Measured scan of single mutants.
Amino acid sequence: TEKEKEVKRLAKERGLSPDQVRELAQRAGFSPDQAKQIADEFA
């Protein structure tokens, strides 16, 4: 999704850790499970 792409782009730009990616995703409105899946891509 657009929102997911945006979260991943920000995460890459900022060099976020997987935990930070998960927090960012949840703040963007993703469920905890979705946020974990997104964060796992950065693990």
Rank of each mutant, 00 (worst) to 15 (best):
V21K: 00
E2I: 10
T1E: 13
K36D: 11
I38K: 00
R22P: 01
G29K: 01
V21D: 00
E6I: 11
L10I: 15
D40G: 05
Q20R: 05
A25Q: 00
L16S: 03
S17D: 10
Q37L: 11
R9W: 04
P18H: 14
E4V: 15
E41A: 12
Q26K: 10
R9P: 00
A39I: 03
R9L: 06
D19A: 13
E23T: 08
L24H: 03
K5P: 02
E4I: 15
D19F: 08
K8M: 10
A43F: 15
G29W: 01
D40W: 15
L24Q: 02
R14A: 11
I38P: 01
A25P: 00
E4F: 12
A25M: 04
E2A: 10
K12S: 08
E23G: 06
D33G: 10
P18N: 06
R9T: 04
D40Q: 11
G15A: 07
L10W: 07
E41S: 12
K3N: 07
I38S: 01
L16E: 01
E2L: 13
R27M: 11
R27K: 12
I38G: 01
D40V: 09
K12H: 12
D33P: 06
V7Y: 04
A11E: 01
G15W: 05
Q37G: 06
T1Q: 13
R22A: 11
L10T: 07
R27G: 05
A28S: 11
L24K: 00
G15M: 08
I38Y: 03
E2M: 13
S31T: 14
F30L: 06
E41Y: 05
E2G: 09
S17N: 14
V21Y: 02
K3C: 11
D33S: 14
T1W: 15
D33T: 14
G15R: 09
E13N: 06
K36F: 09
R22S: 06
F42R: 03
K36P: 01
R22E: 11
L10H: 06
E13K: 11
I38T: 02
P32I: 11
D19I: 10
A43S: 10
D19K: 11
D40H: 13
G29C: 01
R9Q: 07
E13A: 13
A43L: 12
K12F: 11
P32Y: 14
Q20W: 04
L24A: 04
Q34W: 05
F30C: 02
S31K: 05
E2S: 11
T1D: 13
E4C: 11
A35M: 02
E6S: 06
D19T: 10
D19S: 12
Q20K: 06
S31W: 03
Q20N: 04
R9F: 04
V7D: 01
V21Q: 00
A35T: 03
A28V: 14
A11T: 01
P32E: 12
R9A: 06
A35K: 00
A43H: 07
A11R: 01
K5T: 11
A28L: 15
L10Q: 10
K8A: 04
P18K: 11
R27I: 09
R22Y: 15
K36S: 11
A39M: 06
Q26I: 15
Q26S: 08
Q34C: 07
A43I: 11
S17V: 05
K8W: 08
E23P: 00
A25N: 00
E23D: 10
A39E: 03
K12T: 09
Q37Y: 06
F42A: 04
Q26L: 15
L10C: 13
S17Y: 05
K8T: 05
P32K: 10
A11V: 01
R9K: 08
I38W: 03
L10P: 00
D33H: 11
A39D: 01
E4L: 15
S31G: 08
E2N: 11
A35N: 01
T1C: 14
Q26E: 14
L10A: 06
P18M: 11
S31Y: 03
E41H: 05
F42Q: 03
S31D: 08
F30S: 00
E4G: 10
V7W: 05
R22K: 10
A39C: 04
A43Y: 12
T1M: 13
L10F: 06
P32D: 10
L24D: 00
K8H: 07
D33L: 12
I38E: 02
F30Y: 05
R22W: 12
K3R: 14
F30A: 02
R9H: 05
K5N: 13
L16I: 03
L10K: 06
S31V: 03
K3M: 13
F42H: 04
V7R: 02
P18I: 12
E41C: 05
E6H: 10
Q37T: 11
F30N: 00
I38A: 02
A28G: 03
A25V: 02
A35G: 02
V21T: 06
T1I: 13
A28N: 08
E4R: 15
A11F: 04
Q37N: 09
A39T: 03
Q34L: 07
E41I: 06
A43W: 12
P18R: 12
L16M: 10
K12L: 09
K5W: 12
S17G: 07
Q34H: 11
A43D: 08
R14F: 14
R22V: 14
L24P: 00
L24F: 07
E41W: 09
I38C: 03
Q26Y: 07
A39Q: 03
S31R: 06
V7K: 02
E23Q: 13
G29V: 00
P18W: 15
Q37E: 09
R22Q: 11
A28R: 12
L16A: 04
Q26G: 05
Q20V: 03
T1A: 13
A39S: 07
V7I: 15
D33A: 15
S31H: 05
S31E: 05
G15N: 12
E6A: 13
Q37H: 11
E6D: 07
V7M: 06
I38R: 01
S31P: 09
Q20P: 00
L24M: 09
K36E: 10
L10G: 03
Q20S: 04
A11P: 00
A35L: 02
E13C: 14
P32G: 06
K3G: 08
R27V: 07
R14V: 05
